[in-house]
Simulated assay, not measured.
Amino acid sequence: MRDEMPVVGGFEGAAPEVVVRPARTEDAVLIADLSASFVVSDKLVRRSLKELNERIHELSVATRDGVLVGCMGLSRYPHGIVVYNFCIAPDAQGNGIGGLLVDHAARLGRRSGHRRLLAASKYAGDWFIKRGFERILPEKIPDEWLKFLCPGRGSCLFQLELLDQNSSD
């Protein structure tokens, strides 16, 4: 899922600007490096460098002063767009970079006619709730969505409704 127009966001009291753009082939190693500590702490599912390279067209990155500080994968399905491999460098957290990536994903979802963003998370549920996502109770998760919850991980599924289908943001 590509959007060739970079998103630039500046934050009050924070410089330089953050740019959200489609990942490039040369970003795969940097994405793997950024993701590694989150995999070790069980916050992300491990993805090989080969898989990241194969899915580079689904990935977006956030850079600050040319340095990769965040990433997010977006897989398209009939029922919505699934967010995966979403992480922000520890020293860049708390500056709105995750929000920029989610806004980018929502804009892409609306443009492609999708009704919702889905995200599975074991630890960041409150973060998603603060950004308008709703937790889907386990008994209300449709069977076709269960594949997004890796068995045994203890993740919860969250959704963000993309109500304004005609928005051009």
Rank of each mutant, 00 (worst) to 15 (best):
A62F: 01
A92H: 15
S37P: 10
E51Q: 14
A36P: 04
V102L: 15
L117K: 07
I56H: 06
R153L: 04
Q93Y: 14
G125R: 04
V82W: 09
G109N: 06
R107P: 00
K43S: 13
N95G: 08
P90Y: 02
C156G: 13
V7N: 14
R24V: 10
L146G: 13
F38D: 14
P142G: 05
K130M: 03
P138R: 09
G94M: 06
D143Y: 04
R2M: 05
D91G: 08
V7G: 07
F133K: 01
I141C: 01
E17N: 15
G152S: 12
G113N: 09
G73T: 07
L146K: 15
L49A: 06
L137T: 15
K43F: 06
R64D: 10
I81C: 08
G70Q: 06
V40F: 09
W145E: 12
I136S: 12
I31T: 07
G80H: 00
D65P: 07
Y84P: 05
R76I: 09
E4R: 14
R21I: 09
E54A: 09
C150V: 13
K50I: 03
D3Q: 12
V61A: 02
R21M: 11
D3C: 08
P16I: 07
D143A: 12
G109T: 07
F148H: 15
A23L: 06
I136Y: 03
F11D: 11
E58A: 05
K130Y: 05
I81P: 06
L162R: 01
P6A: 09
L117W: 10
G66V: 05
A105N: 10
A14L: 12
K122W: 01
D33V: 05
P16E: 13
Y77S: 09
W145A: 11
Q159Y: 10
I129K: 15
E26Y: 00
D27P: 08
N166E: 13
S167K: 03
G70K: 04
E51H: 04
R111W: 02
V40E: 15
R64V: 11
A106F: 02
L100I: 10
E51N: 11
L163E: 10
D27E: 10
V67R: 14
E12D: 13
A105I: 04
E51V: 09
P78H: 04
C150D: 13
H104E: 13
S75C: 11
H57M: 03
L74M: 14
L160K: 10
K122Q: 13
I81Y: 05
V7R: 13
L59G: 01
E134F: 00
L163Y: 07
K140H: 14
